[in-house]
Write a protein that binds this DNA or RNA. Sequence first.
DNA 1: TTGAAAGCGCTAACAG
DNA 2: CTGTTAGCGCTTTCAA
Lengths: 339, 339
Amino acid sequence: MTKRRGGAGRPSIAGIAAAAGVSPTTVSHALSGRRAVSKETRERVLAEIERQNYRPNLVARGLRRRQTQSVALLVADLANPYYPVVARAIHDVLAAEGYVSFLGNTDGDAGSERTLLEEMAARSVDGIIMQPMGMSVTDVREAVGPAMPLVAITNGAGDASVDQVCTDDAHGIAEAVAYLAEKGLDELGFVGGPRNAPPGPSRLAAFRSAAEEAGLTVPPQWIEHTSFTRDGGATAAARLFARAGRPRAVLCANDLIAIGVLDAARRAGLRVPEDVAVVGFDDIETADLVTPRLTTVLNPAAAVGEACARTMLRRLERGPRPPYERVVLPTRLTVRQSA
Amino acid sequence: MTKRRGGAGRPSIAGIAAAAGVSPTTVSHALSGRRAVSKETRERVLAEIERQNYRPNLVARGLRRRQTQSVALLVADLANPYYPVVARAIHDVLAAEGYVSFLGNTDGDAGSERTLLEEMAARSVDGIIMQPMGMSVTDVREAVGPAMPLVAITNGAGDASVDQVCTDDAHGIAEAVAYLAEKGLDELGFVGGPRNAPPGPSRLAAFRSAAEEAGLTVPPQWIEHTSFTRDGGATAAARLFARAGRPRAVLCANDLIAIGVLDAARRAGLRVPEDVAVVGFDDIETADLVTPRLTTVLNPAAAVGEACARTMLRRLERGPRPPYERVVLPTRLTVRQSA
DNA sequence: TTGAAAGCGCTAACAG
DNA sequence: CTGTTAGCGCTTTCAA
């Protein structure tokens, strides 16, 4: 049924206007509703649009209107099961409001982050949602300029000129430490993420202060750093378990690491939780499927995504002026079997 | 450091041209290299670009060049762990070639698929990669017109005017059936996906013919249909296990379903694999983490993504003329504990 | 090696 | 209620 014009591509507004005997302006307004159009005219126009199967060229519209109805979503690693859930929630909320999403994978690397940020800015996206890993929130703001709507997924403090959605990681971690302490497991280790990439340091800091709060001392050799992966966790835990004297419980900066720790424990012949208790962070779907079922801190991924999208929509409506929002989402301990 | 122009937004090519004392044309060519520019002129232009921190407006460029260096990726459900892996691979390959990805979530629904397809076409993406679920491959081609580069992720036959990347599901399923038959497990059940959505029917068909090949008869009541989710699998398997007489082994149309079947078996007090063997499909990361570890057919997600991206790149280079490609990727049985 | 002019397809300002 | 004109920021003829 599709009608094609002479040699060129899709039908354009000019073709519709000519065929309907009106000006392009009128076609535009019949479509957008931004100006009154008489019923008969509108019907004639819409009929012609239907006949030619016309769809407005959104690139041209974007150039003219100076807004593209698009949002960039920059994540560290889409293959990490936490992000797809966030991404899906963001996508769904945004799509319902007529926005389309660009997806960018940064690998948590500052260089890639900067490149993608510039790329997206050059594409005139209406906003950017990202979890800065290599860059600081302030860096990000500087990179995209003061006018770009920006929602950062963070964890903890920071008050740059950016809207933030953050999870109260410290609360869940404190809950976990208190839970372990109460069980008499007062020799705690921690397998954290990379030394400098969020949310590694902040979760470690939360762990330290929770341990202190609980009156526990944590020897430095029981704190390991690794990547946010299963293999990373396994390797780090292998080091931990190889030492003379090992912790009775290990908290991990995310579930993938924790699953790796379970691997290492199995290989080292340690029973979980009898010989060593393991607590994860995130509560990805897999956490409930491993053996033993993973006790972990629930990080509400879908809620984070939804909050990001809604915060972005509000910002898009309000324009770039302060004040900036800060949405804090709770985390809480989910007790299963591993601790 | 960022320089901003008078009242408006980002610096434009005109501003650079004026400041460098050349025409916009020359700036454009200094940037694109599509025409020779004298060394001195180029350096002057580039210096000015640097000074003003100019980045070309890609929306304007896209309108003019009639290509946007963007590709749409339409998946059924990003939260299904299979897709993030595909998406990441696609993203990485495409990004390396200077393409950016739009992400769309269709929920496997024909309406959403059509809407997103039109949206992406209206945005003049250079190509679309999708796994059609509600729509047929032919429908998709019709919806976007003959000129749109299109790579479909499919499973099995079909030769519409579309490039296809498909996995040889039948092979892996045949392997699984043969493996079970050899073990003497000749009473087979199947928990398939939705009746009409790919890859449900094709995997069921593959199962049927493999069973026939192996000389096994499969009673109709041992074939269940459900959604591609853990809950769906659990519900379907509960029905299966509630019947008088149940299969000795159950093949599933994907791993999520299989994990649901494990749930149901546990609830029904059935041991896996002793009372009932379970085989999944996809080999998502979780398959190796559940208890018992899931025997499943490996569906090479990252390879699928990479093949999609490379096929798209070739198509982008060659233009819309036939012939169309068909890349077939192997699947194979991965034996663990559940069967 | 460079520039002027035209125009991608749309919408907004202005005018009636 | 409708049309004319101008131009978003870029690239591409065409001409020098």
